[in-house]
Amino acid sequence: MIKSKADYKMYLKADQISLGLKNEKVPFICSNERHIIWKYQRLLRKLEYYMNCKTSIPNKIHKKYLKHKLFRMQVHTGMKVPPNVFGPGLSIAHLGTIIINAKAKVGVNCRLHALTNIGMDGRADAVAVLGDNVYIAMGAKIVGKINIADGVVIGANSVVTKDVAESNITVAGAPAKKISSNGNSFPADRRGYELANQSALSFQPAGIK
Rank of each mutant, 00 (worst) to 15 (best):
residue 177 K to Y: 00
residue 118 I to C: 02
residue 129 V to N: 10
residue 193 Y to M: 09
residue 60 K to L: 14
residue 186 F to M: 05
residue 175 P to T: 12
residue 6 A to I: 13
residue 71 F to E: 10
residue 107 G to D: 06
residue 93 A to N: 13
residue 4 S to D: 04
residue 96 G to H: 01
residue 190 R to Q: 14
residue 149 A to Q: 03
residue 26 V to L: 09
residue 83 P to W: 00
residue 115 L to N: 15
residue 40 Y to L: 11
residue 59 N to C: 12
residue 67 K to Y: 10
residue 177 K to D: 03
residue 94 H to G: 05
residue 107 G to M: 04
residue 161 T to N: 03
residue 63 K to D: 01
residue 45 R to N: 10
residue 77 T to S: 10
residue 205 P to N: 05
residue 204 Q to C: 14
residue 166 E to A: 03
residue 64 K to S: 14
residue 34 R to G: 01
residue 101 N to R: 04
residue 125 D to S: 14
residue 107 G to F: 10
residue 54 K to A: 04
residue 89 G to R: 08
residue 137 A to P: 09
residue 22 K to H: 13
residue 147 N to S: 14
residue 17 I to V: 15
residue 118 I to F: 06
residue 177 K to L: 10
residue 184 N to C: 12
residue 189 D to C: 04
residue 136 I to E: 08
residue 103 K to S: 14
residue 85 V to T: 05
residue 14 A to W: 02
residue 149 A to S: 15
residue 97 T to H: 02
residue 58 P to M: 01
residue 154 I to E: 06
residue 139 G to D: 01
residue 87 G to I: 06
residue 44 L to D: 03
residue 157 N to K: 07
residue 166 E to V: 14
residue 129 V to R: 09
residue 110 C to R: 00
residue 109 N to Q: 11
residue 61 I to T: 13
residue 59 N to D: 13
residue 32 N to W: 09
residue 88 P to G: 05
residue 76 H to S: 08
residue 170 T to W: 02
residue 116 T to W: 08
residue 106 V to P: 00
residue 185 S to Q: 15
residue 175 P to D: 07
residue 207 G to Q: 00
residue 13 K to A: 14
residue 158 S to H: 01
residue 201 L to F: 15
residue 37 I to G: 03
residue 52 N to F: 07
residue 4 S to N: 09
residue 85 V to F: 00
residue 63 K to W: 01
residue 7 D to M: 06
residue 127 V to P: 05
residue 122 G to V: 09
residue 56 S to C: 15
residue 91 S to C: 15
residue 33 E to R: 02
residue 66 L to P: 05
residue 138 M to A: 06
residue 192 G to P: 10
residue 131 G to D: 00
residue 126 A to T: 09
residue 47 L to I: 12
residue 101 N to V: 00
residue 194 E to S: 12
residue 185 S to A: 14
residue 118 I to D: 00
residue 50 Y to W: 12
residue 10 M to F: 04
residue 117 N to F: 12
residue 150 D to V: 03
residue 6 A to Q: 12
residue 143 V to Q: 07
residue 206 A to D: 14
residue 156 A to K: 10
residue 144 G to Q: 03
residue 209 K to E: 13
residue 6 A to F: 07
residue 130 L to N: 10
residue 31 S to R: 12
residue 49 Y to W: 15
residue 81 V to L: 14
residue 84 N to S: 11
residue 189 D to F: 15
